[in-house]
């Protein structure tokens, strides 16, 4: 118990220091930048063309951090996913971001289709199969106002002056575009975005199609591991990375 408390404190300090750094508005340090390939391939071929389409694009390995337990009642979780491999490409007015990470468990299901007819008119209803499973997910976050200069928003979902956009993908529920202005304010916009995901040999590969973002924009990544009961702020996160 004592060791766990120490761990929580240590990781909180780490997290807080990265938050303070982020809120102080400094530009990401050297080494925390992402080169962006300019591709002649179409957005669709990068999105759906398989690994060959990305062969020429350099990979950056971005370290992931684990959020400390956020609530008294949280079970502790170990750092099972150390890093995410990121590739980015600009083409056709879009920014494509590929995230790949190792995760030995594929936490995803195919939800049963819900018929369009009202449930009361149907003899059978779609049933809840399980109530205690969580799914793998990933997200790319960037400032909603890309003209905010050197100020990188708080890593905790931005703040009132620095709203963020979150392109969230869930292995079961698909793509959702979200917006936030600080921790606890994340809301779904109801919109989605093109995404392609594959899971092979213990590795997730998810390609996000984002609007083009100008050089210097900061982006951050998050990964959720369903088998570690990840959801909400219980997740892996990277610090801000500046697009070159």
């Amino acid at each position: 118990m004592r060791i766990r408390q120490l761990l929580i404190i240590a990781s909180s300090v780490l997290l807080l220091s990265s938050m303070i750094w982020a809120q102080a508005g400094a530009k990401p340090a050297a080494g925390q930048s992402l080169s962006v390939a300019v591709s002649s391939a179409s957005p669709d071929s990068l999105l759906n063309g398989g690994p060959a389409a990305w062969n020429q694009i350099a990979v950056k390995r971005v370290a992931l951090n684990r959020t400390p337990p956020l609530y008294d009642t949280d079970e502790p979780a170990t750092l099972e996913i150390q890093s995410v491999d990121v590739r980015t490409a600009r083409t056709g007015g879009k920014l494509l971001v590929e995230l790949s990470w190792r995760d030995p468990t594929r936490d995803a299901i195919a939800l049963a289709d819900v018929p369009d007819t009202p449930p009361e008119t149907r003899f059978r209803k779609v049933q809840t199969e399980a109530d205690d499973r969580f799914f793998d997910a990933a997200a790319v976050m960037f400032p909603a106002k890309t003209d905010s200069g050197a100020i990188a928003p708080s890593l905790q979902m931005g703040d009132a002056e620095h709203p963020v956009e979150i392109y969230y993908w869930n292995a079961t529920r698909g793509a959702m575009l979200m917006q936030a202005q600080g921790r606890g304010t994340t809301r779904r916009t109801g919109q989605n975005f093109p995404v392609n995901s594959t899971y092979q040999n213990g590795q997730w590969n998810v390609i996000f199609e984002l609007p083009d973002l100008p050089a210097g924009t900061t982006v951050a990544f998050a990964v959720w591991n369903g088998s570690q009961k990840d959801r909400d702020g219980r997740k892996y996160f990277s610090v801000w990375q500046a697009l070159e």
């Binding site: 009642t73 809840t128 959801r231």
Partner: peptide, 25 residues
Amino acid sequence: DRCQGYRYCIKACPYKKIYFNEVTG
């Protein structure tokens, strides 16, 4: 509209009177 299906409430309720709908999430 605000619920994201995190289920912290189900854990917190000592009477276990909240239920998760996996279809709606």
